[in-house]
Amino acid sequence: MTADTARHATAQAQAGQPLLQVRDLRVYYHTPRGAAKAVDGVSFSLEPGERLGLVGESGSGKSTIALSLMRLIKPPGVIEGGEVLLGGEDLLAKSEEEMRQVRLAGVAMVAQGAMNSLNPVKRVREQILDGLADHGQPIAKRAVADTLGALLRSVGLKPEVAGMFPHELSGGMKQRVVTAIAISLRPKVIIADEPTSALDVVVQRQIMDTLLRVQQDLGAAVILIGHDMGLMAQFVTRLGVMYAGKLVELCPVQAIFDEPLMPYSQLLIASLPSLTKKGELRGIPGLPPSLLDRPTGCPFRARCPHAFDRCAVEEPALRELRPGHWAACHLY
């Protein structure tokens, strides 16, 4: 170990370790035509209380990251390698039973498609209490009503909702119930995978406000996954841009709007409608590469307006190009 890295390590220990550290995470889906590299060497870290956004088009690996942080990747998907450190402990090295305890208590998920995330034949009450009971925190009969009432109130629901079935709730209410379940054990990390995808904008706004409030109450860190840049701008502090299973840019959220570095991020920002400038909406031409046989070099080069020789041979690594602003591009 050189003196330099030793000093770096000490500095990190003094600053306190990040809450969640993902290092070189690789998740492949094994298909008859070969392995689809859905997440290919992604690294990032999360400070306590931080709100990190992950954006990218469909199939870029956002949801796969969410599921692999909870170790819920199902065959043919396999977590091929990497580390997921939560408070210094590697989740990928835990036994299945230890990992089960971490779910909800350590890392909780507000699922994608929360409309169908509640069991239609069980009352809200049972669905909340199930999670508590299986984490060794059964509530005394007398305290159930109080605990549930407080929990439901914290997400803006009336305590009576506990006795209702999911089909008696509106989409927004269901989403709130799912949020209430997710925070019921005061997790350190909340992963919200497109929590508002099926809701109208007014309810979206309410849900995001609720999520923001409970996040601040608990001091939990949030990973918000989605593709709504407007929502991200309002909610997160730092933003990661995913492309073809890789993290191609990671920076404070304002920086992605002010000075996107990676050409993909630039086109993404340019494609957003503007209130002040009139003009035609532009998309990003082309399609992302097949995850099955990925081209050499930069995965974006086929669609990149600035691609040059080096992009075809060498894959750019994620480097800190500005203070706190990381991007994977040969242009800089």
Binding site: M70, L72, R100, Q101, V102, R103, L104, A105, A108, M109, A111, Q112, G113, A114, M115, N116, S117, L118, N119, P120, K122, D130, G131, D134, H135, V178, I181
Partner: peptide, 19 residues
């Protein structure tokens, strides 16, 4: 989705199976 969410809730497999 509710089975996936039940897994994300860290429920015991026996409970997910039956309930």
């Amino acid at each position: 989705d509710y089975v996936t969410f039940a897994e994300a809730k860290g429920l015991r497999d026996r409970r997910i199976f039956f309930s």
